[in-house]
Design a protein around this nucleic acid. Structure first.
Lengths: 117, 117
DNA sequence: GATCTATATACGGTTGACGATATATACAGC
DNA sequence: GCTGTATATATCGTCAACCGTATATAGATC
């Protein structure tokens, strides 16, 4: 599926997808278990929504052992980066995004590769 | 319906709604018949999608005689204005947005109140 | 190769958004 | 008040997105 303005916004128009993207904007790279823990959603949901973001080529994935790490694709069109930046800045202090950050930082046994942006 | 990040993006995730918003970003105020002509959609569709934008309080409407003029609400949260600005700038030179501009400027008998931004 | 963990996908059911169309409302002119 | 124009809403059928759940795949360890 091509990344058009409409499909971009459709991707952002879902609670879990948006929360994952905002988390990925603030943390360079996160694995599925971290996103699952942060959002409190069940794993198949997170995986499925990440798959949609992947099919749109909004995020890229990288396997390392058992873990699969996702990140925002760096080569996105400038205006899309702008939209994501404005969004992340605008929702940073709102629920549930603040809670997601909290849950992530409280998570025990995070895979070591996770690092903050 | 409240204007949340998710509902905002859902509003943007539709062809006609997005095109109307982009048109309204470039022209301070447009009436329904202008938006209908520019997009080439049938009038009830345009009306219904404008109603959704109105219920979200993304746009305001003003009746003047037979015509109802819509505009982007000026008091939107800063980050939403940022998202809209980035989007309008990013899609300005793409179809179908360029064609909408063309169709609008070619429209005969436009209500006089329409003015360019 | 058996087992465990992490992740992805498949299946079935439900619900909400959408388009097409018809009709209602609002206002102007006569 | 009748007619015409502009706009809004209502009805109905269809389809895509979503959730819950089950299961499949991938890799690590022993």
């Amino acid at each position: 599926m091509p990344l058009t303005p409409t499909t971009l916004f459709a991707a952002l128009a879902h609670d879990i997808r948006l929360r994952c993207l905002v988390l990925l904007l603030r943390h360079e790279e996160l694995c599925v278990c971290e996103l699952t823990h942060a959002t409190g959603a069940v794993q198949p949901h997170v995986s499925r929504h990440l798959a949609q973001l992947r099919e749109l080529e909004l995020v890229s994935d990288r396997r390392e052992g058992l873990w699969v790490y996702y990140r925002i694709r760096p080569a996105l069109p400038a205006w899309i980066q702008g939209v994501l930046r404005e969004t992340a800045a605008g929702v940073a202090d709102q629920a549930p995004f603040t809670d997601d950050e909290q849950a992530l930082s409280n998570m025990a046994n995070r895979p070591s590769a996770s690092r903050c942006a």
